[in-house]
């Protein structure tokens, strides 16, 4: 398949997956606190694909409309993080996180606002944890809500302008117990920063392996 490229070594992939796993676990803990509900995570999937490939990956999984909160990050590696879920879940999520703080009417009125804050907390915890693990600072943009079908979302997501660039695409499924809410945490990274990331990952492997036993 021509849009699958694999510039990462197996070991680096594993390390990156674990890094994301650690970040997302922290994000899930935040979501858990906000929703007062159990949050279940899948094992992360990681793929190095072209931009078009990333769009296809999501499009084939979700045919309905989606909502996403996105946040760009910059630093020694840059990219974009997304909290994605089906549009039909949006209100349920808002109600779960706003809980007793808001009436139903207020919640409906503040839907986008509440989504932004939820995304902000979840994505920030994830990215910040990863930055801490790698011992390199990251700057994060303000979160923003985007709506549309899978295709639309990804057309908006041209992080850099280069055509046909390769990106690192990571995603994790999550589900909130007791409520019918599911979604993805996804991350898209540029190739230049991918190379920077490789160096960091190598360092990271050395460090974490060193202190585990």
């Amino acid at each position: 398949m021509s849009d699958h490229v694999v510039p990462l070594e197996e070991m680096e992939r594993d390390a990156l997956t674990e890094l994301v796993n650690i970040g997302v676990s922290r994000a899930a803990a935040s979501l858990r606190k906000m929703a007062g509900q159990q949050v279940l995570l899948s094992v992360p999937s990681l793929e190095v694909v072209t931009r078009g490939g990333a769009a296809t990956l999501i499009r084939e999984r979700e045919s309905g409309d989606l909502v996403a909160v996105r946040q760009d990050f910059e630093g020694v590696f840059s990219g974009r993080a997304l909290l994605i879920f089906p549009e039909s879940n949006s209100m349920a999520l808002v109600r779960a996180v706003a809980g007793s703080a808001l009436s139903d009417a207020e919640a409906a009125e503040m839907e986008d606002e509440a989504l932004t804050e939820t995304g902000n907390v979840v994505l920030n915890s994830c990215l910040a944890t990863m930055a801490n693990m790698l011992q390199r600072p990251l700057t994060m943009s303000l979160p923003q809500v985007v709506r549309g079908n899978g295709v639309g979302l990804f057309e908006l997501m041209q992080v850099s302008t280069e055509e046909g660039g390769v990106v690192l695409f990571l995603y994790i499924n999550f589900a909130i117990n007791d409520r019918d809410i599911r979604g993805y945490i996804a991350m898209l990274m540029d190739l230049p920063s991918l190379q920077a990331l490789r160096l960091l990952i190598t360092e990271f492997i050395r460090r974490v392996i060193g202190d585990e036993v």
């Binding site: 674990e18 890094l19 796993n21 650690i22 676990s25 995570l41 944890t129 974490v208 392996i209 585990e212």
Partner: peptide, 10 residues
């Protein structure tokens, strides 16, 4: 395992 020891849940 290193991931798990640093807080990865799964």
């Amino acid at each position: 395992v290193a991931g798990a020891l640093h807080g990865a849940e799964v």
